[in-house]
Design a protein around this nucleic acid. Structure first.
Lengths: 248, 248
DNA sequence: CGGATTATCGAACCGAGTTCGATACTAGAA
DNA sequence: TTCTAGTATCGAACTCGGTTCGATAATCCG
């Protein structure tokens, strides 16, 4: 179905009359576009134009826009993985897990277009899978059942995914437009909340001040810590329930 | 900017020569389309066609596809909210929280197109906000700081969001196409994992059996329990750290 | 009756993904 | 050298879908 992939960059000894590319060049340009203006900015035409080529050429390297996006994600994930793998690995497994999750989160903050796509690659061998393995490996040193380990990794990555979902919906346009409204944009939420009936929305009024000065990273860390302390508890309990289905 | 909204359904006493609609009819048809074939199936033309009208009419009720999607989500959220509000409210706050999260999760399983959009409405008054309030209200009965409460609700909803993200990427096509491959589809993951080098992927081999028979709901419940037990711990500790920034 | 408002409608515009056939370049075979 | 098959490149054109816009009808109100 897909054409046989093979990098043509090996021998550009003689200048070709026509533009010569490579999958790396394509991915690099794609990441550039994504970094500049987010996911919607990645168009086949725009990419071809940046590469100085035609749309047809792009389709020789990737099977479509979706494939392109997946490969771009995998491409930058290589860097994240390198960052994650550069670590002692001797510390407390839970702390290691936290460090890795934070690294991943930081990457998503840098590139919101990673969105929740970074977990889409666990079917095939790739950096998503390696990431998954890397996180899970820490859990091997904990006294848990395999099922518990599987659930734990999913849960930790889930915290990153949900944070990414939050990040991804923030205004890509307002930042580009007026620089003033960035601070005001978030404040408007709080203002709206304060205008609500305290009798009908007691909780919102309770937390509105905390929300007003909220920091995405703190929020993420708090959620992560809840999951990790739950995990710690589970590990200390020494294989409690959960593993096999004992109910009906 | 947007035309003043006002339901015209109040007085259809006399039959009009031209088709007459209402925002409810539009939303109902939109939900139908979404339920039938997922998010990509919601097209303005398709919706107009189902309503027996033209595309222009749709734009009188909604400002665009995004708005339409948001309203459709809010529309079905009303039902979820009703389900959530029908409860004693006397039990353990954490248990109540779990029950609500599960209800929400079930709704997302039913309608994967809810995706992670159901948290997009917390700026304006709507069912998203009410949901948020409803969840958070349970936390008022726990000994936590407002910031801790805020983080806790976000964390719990985050578990649902990440589960929704998982659900949303499953094959909408394969189910429609061959009914045979549903079971095989998930099994392929496990098969691929088993084919990997155990030395390079020790964790994957450790959990592959657990993964093979994995159940989305169990997975969600496990992640939820980790967060909730972390929360329980935090509440029992009686306002530990987290609230003010004490570090540098 | 006569504007003003409320609604309805679809042709047309536009951007974007994808397809396809034409073409060029290269490496080997004859 | 010439032929040929495989490797790459290229952009016109097709399709689909969101959105705009002006025409038109129905209704309300003075």
């Amino acid at each position: 179905m897909t054409p046989p992939r093979q990098r043509p960059a090996d021998r550009p000894s003689r200048e070709r009359r026509r533009a010569s590319h490579s999958i790396e060049a394509v991915l690099g340009a794609a990441v550039e576009l994504l970094d500049e203006a987010g996911e919607p900015a990645l168009t086949i035409r725009g990419l071809a134009s940046r590469l100085g080529t035609g749309v047809g050429s792009v389709y020789w390297y990737v099977s479509g826009r979706d494939d392109l996006l997946d490969r771009a994600v995998d491409h930058v994930l290589a860097g994240v993985l390198a960052e994650i793998e550069r670590h002692p690995g001797t510390g407390d497994p839970v702390d290691e897990l936290r460090r890795m999750a934070v690294t991943l989160f930081d990457a998503v903050v840098d590139r919101p277009w990673l969105g929740s796509r970074f977990m889409r690659g666990i079917d095939a061998e790739g950096n998503s899978l390696r990431l998954y393995e890397e996180l899970g490996r820490q859990l091997l040193r904990l006294d848990l059942t395999p099922l518990q380990r599987f659930h734990a990794v999913t849960a930790v990555l889930g915290v990153v995914v949900s944070a990414a979902a939050d990040l991804g919906q923030e205004p890509p346009q307002a930042v580009v437009d007026g620089l003033v409204e960035r601070e005001e944009y978030l404040g408007r939420y709080a203002t709206n909340w304060r205008a609500l009936d305290p009798g009908e929305y007691p909780f919102l009024h309770d937390v509105v001040d905390a929300f007003d000065g909220h920091d995405d990273k703190q929020q993420f860390l708090a959620a992560l810590d809840l999951t990790l302390s739950g995990l710690h508890l589970q590990a200390d309990r020494g294989r409690g329930p959960d593993a096999p289905a004992e109910g009906p």
